[in-house]
């Protein structure tokens, strides 16, 4: 009984980390920059396709594809930021919403055109398959790896945004554009880099997630709900908040499915609604 409890906790935490990796980029673009970026999962999907292409068609090792997935998504978003998003930073939320939904539509059709509608095969190297046994407990290797990756991303991101000069510029530019400009900060440049960072993280998250959730052109729609849930429950602009929210949602979802499978489909939404009623700005939200 205790064994299964530990197992459920572990699975839930790992699932939470999967959600976190998919959504952390959005707490940068939506959370910090306040841009309603519904195309987040399109960038994640791009990362996924990059990884699959490099692995399956060109025979690259899995780990080598991850930085490329990050860079590809970052580069694509930098181009889009310059062309489409920048003029809309001050537009209404609704216009941003419509624009990014348009991008989702285009990306879904584009993926179907290039890769076909077929489910993409994801074959990991053997050392990431299987499980580590610990007494009577089994810890799947890939899930351990996901947890590790999520922790690294969190630490690096928090350190970069809170303790570096670049991070200070980003926070200044986001909090008060005019003042930041007055201080000589290249706000446009900072925004471009920040946006690319958020989308790059999406690409990385996509590349890491496809082993578990699979990849086809509807990816950009399917996981949109999950990432928005994580970001809103965590609180906008809070990396730590997203981390905690993803953990809570992952564990409660997994525990619910294990102990009360009849409620399996409801639980993640119930937890979200409950948490938001308790703290409307999210767990660590400031506004």
């Amino acid at each position: 009984m205790l064994g299964s409890f530990v197992g459920v906790l572990f699975d839930g935490f790992a699932y939470g980390m999967l959600l976190f990796l998919l959504s952390v980029g959005l707490s940068v673009t939506l959370g910090m920059m306040n841009f309603v970026n519904l195309a987040h999962c399109s960038f994640a999907m791009l990362g996924g396709y990059v990884t699959v292409t490099l692995m399956d068609r060109l025979g690259w090792p899995f780990f080598a594809t991850l930085p490329v997935a990050f860079l590809a998504a970052a580069a694509a978003s930098a181009a889009l930021e310059r062309a489409l998003f920048r003029p809309l930073y001050r537009a209404s939320d609704l216009d941003q919403c419509l624009l990014t939904i348009g991008i989702v539509f285009v990306s879904v059709a584009g993926a179907a055109y290039v890769y076909g509608t077929v489910q993409q095969p994801v074959q990991l190297p053997d050392y990431l398959r299987g499980a580590v046994t610990f007494g009577s407990l089994r810890f799947p290797v890939y899930r351990l790896f996901l947890i590790g990756a999520a922790l690294v991303v969190t630490v690096v991101l928090v350190a970069a945004l809170e303790h570096t000069r670049f991070g200070a510029r980003v926070r200044a530019a986001v909090d008060n554009q005019r003042m930041a400009r007055g201080l000589g900060i290249d706000v446009d440049g900072v925004f471009a880099v920040t946006f690319a960072l958020g989308s790059g993280l999406a690409g990385l998250g996509g590349a890491l997630a496809i082993e578990i959730v699979g990849l086809d052109p509807s990816f950009a729609f399917t996981y949109l709900i999950y990432v928005i849930i994580v970001v809103s429950v965590g609180g906008l602009a809070s990396i730590g908040g997203s981390f905690v929210a993803a953990t809570l949602l992952g564990i409660s979802d997994m525990a619910g499915k294990y102990y009360v499978p009849q409620l399996g489909a409801f639980l993640i939404y119930l937890v979200m609604v409950g948490l938001l009623m308790w703290r409307p700005t999210g767990l660590f939200g400031r506004r």
Binding site: P87, D95, G102, F105, V106
Partner: peptide, 21 residues
């Protein structure tokens, strides 16, 4: 199969050229 592409372009165009719908 790919009509989403054109609808997507339509939405993007409306936002760029006719903000607020």
């Amino acid at each position: 199969q790919y009509w989403y592409f054109w609808i997507g372009l339509l939405l993007i165009a409306v936002v760029l050229f006719l903000p607020n719908g």
